[in-house]
């Protein structure tokens, strides 16, 4: 027997999606604008895209670059962030560099990077890498900084060297914070993936989207938006299930009832 609270929690996301589509449908019918197709028209265009071999190759190429950029960024950023969090010297060296790069829109760097690396995979992957790495570094840094000194002392007393303490104490303790950064990074990876393909049109999901826009195929444009949005939801759900498994120890036991419920 499923309790009503659980039912509400399960049904809520579905309800939100259906509601959004309904509002879209009504707004589109009311506005009667050629460049704003109805939700149903957009959804009808999805099978055409996913059925088309070339479109599918494009989307998969996007995902491959994203996975590559995200993966490398995480592998580089976590150790760097942890080292920064535990060593004032390293933090003092990297902090100004990161603060310079952080506010720059990564897409704005695209034209320059394109001059060096061309319009291919390398450029786009690099841009995704840059977009992902900063939040991951930042959160790893904060997570490592917050590790209780006495926890490290306890480890030192057991004979763990400082390198081992970093891997075997700082990393697990900071993991919830690191994963928060990775989640932000995942969203940013998706965003930079599309924008990079908007600037360097050659292949990818963004390429389909903006080509359709140029040709006035608005139902395809909106269908692509739905596809990208769905990719976002799915990636986030996968990430969340992995995250929940990794940091089960830090999760609160029960759902805290909100004050108004």
């Amino acid at each position: 027997m499923i309790s009503s609270a659980v039912l509400t929690r399960r049904a809520a996301p579905v309800l939100a999606c259906v509601g959004l589509l309904a509002v879209w449908q009504v707004a589109s019918l009311a506005l009667k604008n050629d460049s704003f197709p109805t939700a149903i028209e957009a959804i009808r265009a999805i099978p055409d895209i996913l059925g088309d071999r070339e479109s599918l190759t494009n989307i998969l190429a996007s995902l491959r670059r994203m996975a590559m950029g995200f993966g490398v960024a995480v592998l580089v950023s976590i150790p760097l962030g942890l080292l920064m969090g535990r060593s004032r010297g390293i933090a003092a060296f990297f902090n100004p560099l990161l603060m310079v790069i952080y506010p720059v829109p990564k897409a704005a760097l695209m034209p320059i990077i394109m001059l060096w690396l061309g319009v291919g995979d390398a450029t786009k992957t690099l841009v995704i890498f840059l977009g992902v790495s900063l939040p991951v570094i930042y959160h790893s840094f904060e997570g490592a900084k917050a590790v209780e000194e006495k926890m490290l002392w306890s480890g030192a007393a057991m004979g763990l060297s400082s390198a081992k303490r970093l891997v075997r104490i700082v990393l697990p303790v900071a993991l919830p914070e690191i994963l928060t950064g990775c989640r932000t990074g995942l969203v940013l990876a998706l965003i930079t993936m599309i924008t990079s393909e908007m600037i360097a049109r050659q292949s990818g999901a963004g390429n389909i989207l903006f080509n359709a826009l140029d040709m006035g195929q608005y139902d395809t444009v909106f269908a692509m938006i739905i596809i990208v949005g769905t990719m976002g939801i799915c990636l986030d759900a996968i990430f969340e299930s992995v995250r929940a498994r990794l940091v089960r120890w830090s999760e609160p036991q029960f759902d805290m009832p909100l004050s108004f419920s």
Binding site: E148, K150, M151, W153, S154, A156, A157, M158, G159, I169, P172, V173, L175, V247, W249, S250
Partner: peptide
């Protein structure tokens, strides 16, 4: 000159490993 397993600390803050 440094910590070692011959001296075992117990802190007011417990300092347990939360993931274990």
């Amino acid at each position: 000159t440094g910590p070692g397993p011959d001296r075992g600390p117990v802190f007011q803050e417990f300092a347990l490993f939360p993931w274990k």
